[in-house]
Amino acid sequence: MLCPNNQVLSYSTTSRDSYREFKSNPTICANCPHLQQCTHSRNHQKVVQKLIWESHVERAEDFRHSEEGKASYTLRSQTIERVFADAKEKHGMRYTLLRGLDRVRNWVRLKFAAMNLKKPTLWA
C-alpha cells in the first residue's frame, strides 16, 4: 500500500472483523505536503483497512468484466435465477408461516435439499 506521497503503509494487524490494517509512519507524515488530503488524525497517521479477501474480489470483478465473464453472466437467468423461481412457484417459498431465523433457515435448507434430490430422479 502506498500513500499519495508514495510512502509505504506497512502492515499493522488483522482485526477480528477480517480487516487488515495498514498504517503510515507518523514522523514522515507530520511533514508531508499531502497531509490534509490524506488524513485528519491528531497523530498524523494514515490508517487503511482492507478486507482479507479483497484480492479475490478484485479477481472476480476482473473476470466479470472480461468477455468470458460477460458470456457466462448471460446464462445466469437460465441456471441460478431459475432455481429461485421454481422454489417460489412450485415449493411454496413465497411466504413462510414460521417465526424465528433458525426455524426459517432449517425450513429453507430442507426445501432446497428436496429440490436437489428431485433433480436426479427427473433426469433418470
Rank of each mutant, 00 (worst) to 15 (best):
M1Q: 11
M1I: 13
L2G: 10
C3D: 02
N5V: 04
N6R: 04
N6L: 09
Q7H: 14
V8E: 05
L9F: 01
L9S: 00
Y11I: 01
S12N: 11
T13V: 12
T13M: 10
T14C: 04
S15R: 10
S15H: 08
S15G: 14
R16T: 15
R16D: 11
S18Y: 09
S18C: 14
Y19N: 04
E21R: 06
E21N: 07
E21A: 07
K23G: 12
S24Y: 00
S24K: 01
P26W: 01
T27E: 13
I28M: 06
C29N: 02
A30L: 14
N31C: 15
N31P: 08
C32F: 03
C32Q: 00
C32K: 02
P33K: 12
H34F: 07
H34M: 11
L35A: 05
Q36A: 13
C38Q: 02
C38G: 02
C38I: 06
T39M: 02
H40Q: 13
S41A: 08
S41G: 09
S41Q: 12
S41H: 07
H44T: 03
H44W: 02
Q45K: 04
K46P: 01
V47Y: 02
V48A: 03
V48H: 04
K50A: 06
K50G: 05
L51G: 12
L51T: 14
L51F: 08
I52G: 03
E54K: 11
E54M: 09
S55A: 07
V57N: 06
E58C: 02
E58W: 09
A60Y: 12
A60I: 13
A60L: 07
A60G: 09
E61Y: 15
E61G: 15
E61C: 13
D62R: 15
F63R: 08
F63E: 09
R64P: 04
R64G: 04
R64Q: 10
R64C: 13
S66W: 01
E67W: 12
E68H: 12
E68W: 05
E68A: 11
G69V: 04
K70S: 06
K70G: 10
A71M: 03
S72L: 12
S72N: 13
S72V: 14
Y73R: 10
Y73C: 12
T74Y: 11
T74P: 03
L75G: 14
R76L: 07
S77D: 07
Q78E: 10
I80Y: 05
I80A: 05
I80T: 14
E81M: 07
R82L: 11
F84A: 00
F84W: 00
A85Q: 06
D86S: 11
A87N: 09
E89G: 11
E89H: 15
E89Q: 14
H91W: 03
H91L: 03
M93Q: 05
M93G: 01
R94W: 03
R94I: 01
Y95P: 00
L97Y: 07
L97K: 13
L98R: 09
R99V: 08
R99F: 04
G100V: 04
D102H: 14
D102C: 09
D102V: 11
R103Q: 10
R103Y: 06
R103H: 10
R105Y: 13
N106C: 14
W107F: 10
V108E: 01
V108F: 02
V108C: 09
R109L: 15
L110H: 11
F112P: 00
F112H: 06
F112Q: 06
F112W: 05
A114P: 01
N116W: 04
N116V: 12
L117S: 06
K118P: 05
K118L: 08
K119M: 15
T121V: 15
